[in-house]
Nucleic acid binder design. Structure first.
Lengths: 249, 249
DNA sequence: CAAAAGCTTCGGTCCAGGCCGAAACATGCC
DNA sequence: GGCATGTTTCGGCCTGGACCGAAGCTTTTG
């Protein structure tokens, strides 16, 4: 009985996320940008009234925060914890046994590179993380991570040396990628890295959606700076749909 | 459109968690123990048939794993990722603006000390974590953490020195407590610590539920070994229900 | 001021899905 | 075998809530 209260709160939040239209809205907001009610309605495939109702509920529960600006109302995820919860759910969803594999044709752009709240995700993020680790610039262990001395030099060269504040250790968490099922750089370092790569125009945000585009400048610079294998796009890390693996999924 | 697929999977999983009965079942399973369908039915407050149906759905989606044993069927959370997702949701739920405060009378035992999947949570866990950090045994930074040299000695004395394997760095993550809203020790170190404290009988699992009981042996030993303040039970870290705070909840 | 655009509120329809009773299986004990 | 216990399947009831049309509100534009 003592557990009922919290379990009910759990159910309330999960039920809120568990509606198709609202899940689409939240998924769209995972890009990190604040979006208007109309945009969210379109991306969820419902009318404006319906989306408005959903947004009211989400805001009421503290999942999204709204900001009025003229005749628009911009919504965004309320806290990083919300983004983390959504991410954790997507991880579970990605690991779930798949009945049918509707691997969408347009999904490839998302799989290659996208934003995950405030950092990078997708194959590029995984490739960079792998190479950083292989070169001894970072040391990862489960969710935690650490920047080595050589890693500091590398990030200094990118102009984000102040990440490694003297007193505080640099934050370097990892985040399990739902498409690649491999960890990639998240946390404060991940956020700073993404904003720096955007700033240097090695990457650009797609006009709509969460996809990240690799500029021609970035194409060469990324491979050079992070010593990525030239065929990093091809490396199919997990052949999840080809052969049956022993693990059950 | 490219996002629809994943958003739908997100909605599917969340909707599964978002039902009161199923949330109660999952919440009960967060204790880490495998439970029978009957026990889960009772803890969810539904009949056996209903619980059976729910368990089938949860197993089908890969959230719980079932194991037949005689005429019982034991269910447990399928993967650590599921536990993590539930935890993340509970964190969001705990941060949500509270309409009414039905702080249950029996909830106090849970708030004091309980299991959180495989490690400790509640006031005791937070107090230990705080003191470890204050004494320089561990260094925490957001989700990541590290054991210092003095911390290694402390854990050696507890008989869990092998945690700090030579090659691998000790895993030391933190986990935000839904009742105290403070981080506490999780990750591999948290799991090992809990099992060691149970083994030494400083703590004992409550016969039912997730509460942890502090033995008379542990009462003294915990304070002594971790240098806890003698009044650690009283320290009301967040006076969430007494005085109105500025934060909105 | 009127018109348009963006958003919300209201009212009514409709359906997915949770719930239980009854009955069927399955397993263990006598 | 006969009975008790644990669990699942089936069928029918019923409620919560998602959805949209229409109308109302607010802010920008002309």
């Amino acid at each position: 009985m003592s557990a009922v209260i919290s379990a009910n709160m759990l159910a309330t939040i999960a039920a809120l996320i568990g509606d198709t239209a609202r899940a689409n809205i939240l998924f769209a907001l995972m890009g990190g940008k604040a979006l208007t009610a109309g945009e969210l309605a379109a991306s969820a495939g419902v009318t404006a009234q319906t989306a408005s109702g959903h947004l009211a509920k989400l805001a009421d529960a503290g999942l999204v925060a709204v900001e009025k600006q003229g005749r628009h109302r911009y919504s965004r995820l309320a806290t990083p914890e919300v983004a983390q919860a959504l991410h954790a759910l997507m991880t579970v969803a990605a690991m779930a046994p798949r009945r049918h594999h509707p691997t969408g044709p347009r999904e490839v752009a998302l799989r290659l590179a996208r934003t995950c709240y405030d950092h990078m995700a997708g194959r590029l993020a995984v490739a960079i993380t792998d190479q950083l680790q292989a070169d001894g610039h970072i040391i990862l262990d489960d969710g935690a991570g650490q920047i080595t001395r050589s890693g500091q030099h590398l990030f200094d060269a990118l102009g984000i040396g102040q990440t490694t504040m003297p007193g505080k250790r640099p934050l370097c968490r990892t985040c399990l990628d739902w498409s690649e099922r491999r960890p990639h750089l998240a946390g404060r370092l991940g956020a700073i890295l993404l904003s720096r790569l955007l700033e240097m125009q090695w990457l650009a945000k797609a006009p709509a959606g969460r996809a990240l585009l690799i500029t021609s400048l970035g194409e060469k610079a990324l491979i050079e700076h992070f010593r990525l294998p030239v065929d990093w796009r091809q490396t199919d890390l997990y052949p999840c749909r080809s052969n049956g693996n022993s693990n059950g999924f």
